[in-house]
């Protein structure tokens, strides 16, 4: 397994008056090279679960291991390094910097790795062509359509060739056609050996025929009913 969570709890603002427990005793195993959907309503805790898997922050208690590393033992600095080597993120809001060109946005994760400009451009250009947005390569990201932005976000998540792709409500701002396209790309990536975890309540995603597994999240717990 590439992802393994044991008795994971997450409490926000621990010990403060506004303390909130978002996850309760989560046990979860995700196999390598699978496509898994975390399904649940807004506020169910699926984004928090995705963030713990994505090494964005640690669990309050319990054990979380991603790609062979125990996250609880990792200092913040090493968690960041592990995240950039292992996880590619695709966000609901895409989180693209609108003033940068499409190509520069995609190459952004490579800057602190000391990759030369030529290599950055070459790697980004390959992904741009692969995802069919070559004609937008030098456009400011703020000037391209929602569907194209989604592809920019996917390309950025793949630029460092990470084995795990996490997507948080990726189709929330896409129409049906673009959502189908997105899922098509995810299937391609899975076939290429990636592990895909998508948090969504969009039936187009949750009921996709290539989805290996659906995990229901409700009120911070995995629903096994």
């Amino acid at each position: 397994m590439i992802i393994e969570l044991q008795s994971v709890n997450k409490v926000y603002n621990l010990g403060q008056p506004n303390e909130v427990q978002a996850l309760f005793d989560i046990n979860l195993v995700i196999e390598e090279n699978s496509m898994v959907c975390l399904r649940g309503a807004s506020g169910s805790g699926k984004s928090t679960l995705l963030a713990i898997i994505g090494c964005v922050f640690p669990a309050t208690s319990g054990r979380a291991a991603v790609a062979g590393k125990q996250l609880a033992r990792l200092p913040d600095r090493f968690m960041t390094i592990h995240r950039r080597r292992t996880i590619g993120f695709i966000f609901q809001q895409f989180n693209i910097l609108p003033n940068l060109t499409v190509l520069d946005n995609i190459a952004l994760p490579l800057l602190p790795l000391g990759i030369s400009p030529d290599e950055r451009r070459q790697r980004a250009a390959e992904l741009i062509e692969r995802l069919g947005i070559g004609h937008r390569r030098d456009f400011p990201a703020g000037q391209v359509s929602g569907g194209e932005l989604q592809r920019v976000a996917i390309a950025r998540a793949l630029i460092n060739n990470q084995p795990i792709i996490l997507a948080d409500e990726p189709t929330a701002h896409l129409d049906t056609t673009l959502s189908h396209d997105f899922m098509g790309i995810m299937v391609e990536l899975k076939n290429a050996g990636k592990t895909i975890v998508i948090a969504s309540h969009d039936p187009l995603v949750t009921e996709h025929p290539d989805m290996d597994r659906i995990i229901d999240v409700r009120d911070g717990r995995i629903d096994v009913s």
Partner: peptide, 16 residues
Amino acid sequence: KREIGILKILGWQTAD
């Protein structure tokens, strides 16, 4: 703040 958040989640460290 948003730019810093995006850079961090993409693997940029605080030092970067």
